[in-house]
Write a protein that binds this DNA or RNA. Sequence first.
DNA 1: GGTCTTCTCCCCGGATATGGGGATTGTGGC
DNA 2: GCCACAATCCCCATATCCGGGGAGAAGACC
Lengths: 215, 215
Amino acid sequence: MSLRIAIFDDNKNIRESITLLLDTVPTFEVVGSFSHVLDCVDDVRSCKPDIVLMDIEMPGMTGIEAVAAIRKEYPHIQVLMQTVFEDDDRVFDSICSGASGYILKNHLNTRLVDAINELQYGGSPMSPSIARKVLGKLQQIPQHVKPEEAPDYRLTVREKEVLACIVEGLSYKMIADRLTISYETVRSHVKKIYEKLHVASLTEAVAKAIHQRIV
Amino acid sequence: MSLRIAIFDDNKNIRESITLLLDTVPTFEVVGSFSHVLDCVDDVRSCKPDIVLMDIEMPGMTGIEAVAAIRKEYPHIQVLMQTVFEDDDRVFDSICSGASGYILKNHLNTRLVDAINELQYGGSPMSPSIARKVLGKLQQIPQHVKPEEAPDYRLTVREKEVLACIVEGLSYKMIADRLTISYETVRSHVKKIYEKLHVASLTEAVAKAIHQRIV
DNA sequence: GGTCTTCTCCCCGGATATGGGGATTGTGGC
DNA sequence: GCCACAATCCCCATATCCGGGGAGAAGACC
């Protein structure tokens, strides 16, 4: 069974040349070719591709939004982004939207077929300069994503609920209302929370709750 | 001028076979081959490579620490990691340590030369499955790293100082002390802060300050 | 000189939070 | 049955905060 491919690109010449190129590969089948992404989810539904080639510069909805939309409906579809630009923001926006690969347009002729094959076998083809940017990005964020001390304060579920309300800025009265318990009960919980968090005021509790991601 | 390459791998056979392979490329020159990384910084200093091949599994100091050490002293050197494993943690640790590429050992024969060339021209060669992992990782961290709306509340410096104290959990009295102003002045600032942040309590102010990174 | 902003200080009255007690249920473990 | 614990409620006295005022000094801008 052949690999079904859909193309989104506002440039007719590019769509045609990509189609020609892909048609030279027996196991590939271009099942759709679209000049805009306004109906991309419908388009994808009707032509059922395994892989989508998406131009990042598109009229109307951007290619980035389109990727997000498509991946939301059809998470199994692999999306390969293509662009003439390689500015950081768009690269990372695409990645965050769920693109599985990213190649520059001037590498299309030489790399596209390989890239599609790589996608199919669980890879994430990227033009070299893109790959470098991606690694650089990962190096920037590291520390505070992974280690992140997570002391366990052993708050009960109820206490966490109360704490969440506090962080929202509610007063004891409002919390009592929201949780349909009495004002005094809220106080009791808060006292317990203070003990467990080793704080002595709402502000401290809020700061700690947010920083330690208790809420 | 040829490209100088150093090899770190505890397996003698692998070192030799890599050397043989690389020697077939006229523009490559293997300038060092080491079985451990205990003196890696010294080794690198003496053989002055452009590119380092580093096995991730090494006796003594791990390849990951070695990368960090080498990159710290010689940031211009590109390091290509190689491993038989592809467990997430080590991949990401290596990246965070500053590796510029990452290939699996069973791709060595077919990909090593290409990978080195790619490194040289500003790319970041990765085995397909590694590339996929890296993208996946980037997708996980997203929202709070990049754009993050940054509304400008136009707080004055003084107001920010007061806000910072509040987030620390200080009371008005303590803030007055810390900033050597009167209690009433603190109150005035707080009122202004409430206005500007559109909040009506310390807890809300703290939550907003932290979430919007005002402090 | 006039206007604006910032930082400083003040008063009052009411609202809210805090500290330090005590008490009652129900649940689950031993 | 006893014990620990979570969850619920109560009281009192004090501390602290909040809203809505007013006001003076210093500097920036026109």
